[in-house]
């Protein structure tokens, strides 16, 4: 399975729905998408990971890169994920402290810290 990406706007947030496998082969596509959004002025991103079957450190690197970019514009990058096997990778790497992780898109969109 390849990577699928779709974006939609909810209020001032841009929701990026990701599906499939994020690995060394597909991660560049996600990186391009995030860079493009930030370049187009979308600085508040919600990345919906519910459709992700596989995530590795390359994917984590892209998400961290995205966070760095939006923060440069005082933006935010929130994740939506309920899958234990994906959450485990964020825990192992200590990234649960870096990313706000939400249980639903609605919750992520409403969150303001």
């Amino acid at each position: 399975m390849d990577l699928s990406l779709s974006t939609r706007t909810v209020g001032d947030r841009t929701v990026v729905e990701v599906g499939g496998e994020i690995d060394v082969y597909t991660a560049p596509k996600l990186r391009e998408q995030l860079v493009e959004l930030v370049n187009d002025g979308s600085f508040h991103l919600v990345v919906d990971m519910e459709g992700v079957d596989f995530l590795d450190s390359t994917g984590l690197g892209v998400l961290v890169g995205g966070l760095k970019r939006v923060r440069a514009h005082e933006g935010s990058l929130r994740l939506v994920c309920n899958q234990e096997r994906i959450l485990k990778i964020f825990r192992i790497t200590g990234l649960t402290k870096v990313f706000p992780i939400h249980t639903s898109v609605e919750e992520a969109v409403a969150a303001t810290d």
């Binding site: 590795d56 450190s57 390359t58 984590l60 690197g61 990778i89 192992i92 790497t93």
Partner: peptide, 17 residues
């Protein structure tokens, strides 16, 4: 530096798993 970081992150995941 980015490559080195990603390399280390991969190893971090392996040793964590």
């Amino acid at each position: 530096d980015v490559e080195t970081e990603e390399d280390e992150m991969g190893l971090a995941v392996i040793s964590g798993l």
